[in-house]
Design a binder for these strands. Structure first.
Lengths: 233, 233
DNA sequence: TCGCAAATTTAGTCGCGGCTAAATTTTTTA
DNA sequence: TAAAAAATTTAGCCGCGACTAAATTTGCGA
């Protein structure tokens, strides 16, 4: 009952639950790229195993046990991502796909070895928090780059790992973890942003992409940042 | 058609082929711990995919393509074993089970990275040769410890990875890769051996176990080795 | 509030990779 | 060499996790 498929469903439900409280069958099906019928099927099986509550036609919610299991898989995933990045220099746009498969097959013993080797890390290569073995997980809430006002600076804290191509793009732009960004200006109606990165280069970041980057705004340096921009022109 | 199950069958057939030319259904079934009917079933599928020849009631033989595929899986397996042993100090009795699962899910890219990281190694932690990416594999033929005459010394070159408990036992005894062993005496009728290891400790090694250790006999040092034994008593 | 569209579930199918029991072929032995 | 034993294959089944098509429920708008 803890097949790779079941683990993927639990993980998906956990992830979706972080955003919307009620996880619907169709949201789940869309996220996992399976048919709605398949999702219903697995949901019923997970409900029977008491890993989630299912109120038919209204959505699902993980039980304590289900959440614990989801967090175990997520812990595996993020530890493996960091391990591959550290030991083999696997680029951050590739670690996700590898971890997605390896996470289902490693033993608890290997998990422990990896965690110890990495010094019991708390963040994976995308800035996602790594749950503890006990099932505790930090819930860092950062504004997205889109929420940073024009003229403000920020530090990249977390980047969505869902799209490898986006990640590759971010790398090229210098939008990596802990990088400084100055938001120069922003088109109206949630339009694209113009930003300047540490190297001094300026880039246009689309709205969709900006939503995938979460940051710590640097309130103190806002003005000076802009001042320097204006002076340099 | 290259499911984990199919890969395991190909690997098993390759391994069995190394010993006996004709691999029978029952040998395969016994090795993989499945029923004979299941083995026949998969054999027919692999034959349809032209990965092996099947002469019904008489056994199977890998085709070129089948052998290539088997070697790819074995390469994955042995690289992963060595990688886990090197980076995480996973003991040699555990690496096999982990590799058995991970071998089916890593990408070619990750395989390449691991191989490069390890310096394109040729032997895994048990002394098994690692096939090249092109599908070439060394065929070292060593006599087993059982073939070493009383009074001879030898160096451990390869140890069967099939039984974790045996491996753990060998570790305790000091029968590790590249270790020196003096065969002191041997009970008649292929009985157990008495050996002395590098530390000077003496141990009894059962026939079954001795068959799982392959060595390079040290012809020159035979007499002196024994002489020293007798003197020390 | 009634009806329709959208969401969801149910019903039934498929391939995979196991299984057992029965049939068949090969091998051994009397 | 014929019968019994052993090995192998065939037939038919099961659970898993996907699918499509059809039925059902929900909820929104007229």
């Amino acid at each position: 009952m803890t097949s790779a498929a079941a683990q993927n469903y639990l993980k998906a439900i956990y992830t979706l639950q972080e955003q919307q409280a009620a996880v619907t069958t169709s949201a789940l099906a869309q996220y996992l790229k399976v048919s709605a019928a398949s999702a219903t099927n697995m949901v019923k099986k997970l409900a029977r195993a008491r890993l989630l509550h299912h109120s038919p036609y209204h959505g699902v919610q993980l039980t304590g046990r289900g959440e614990k299991m989801a967090l175990e898989v997520i812990r595996h995933h993020r530890l493996i991502e960091l391990f591959l990045a550290r030991t083999l220099a696997v680029p951050w746009d590739c670690v996700h796909a590898e971890a997605e498969k390896i996470e289902h097959v490693i033993s608890e013993d290997l998990e422990d070895r990896i965690a110890t080797f990495l010094g019991d890390p708390t963040l994976d290569p995308h800035g996602d928090p790594i749950p503890t073995k006990a099932g505790q997980v930090a819930r860092p809430v950062y504004p997205s780059l889109l929420d940073v006002g024009a003229g403000q600076s920020a530090v990249v804290r977390r980047v969505s790992d869902q799209n490898p191509e986006h990640l590759r793009h971010f790398s090229k732009l210098g939008l990596v973890l802990d990088a400084n960004v100055d938001v120069l200006e922003r088109e109206p109606f949630e339009g694209p942003l113009r930003v300047r990165v540490a190297s001094g280069a300026e880039h246009i970041v689309d709205e969709t992409l900006a939503r995938e980057i979460w940051v710590s705004p640097l309130t103190g340096q806002t003005r000076t940042g802009m001042a320097r921009v204006k002076k340099s022109k």
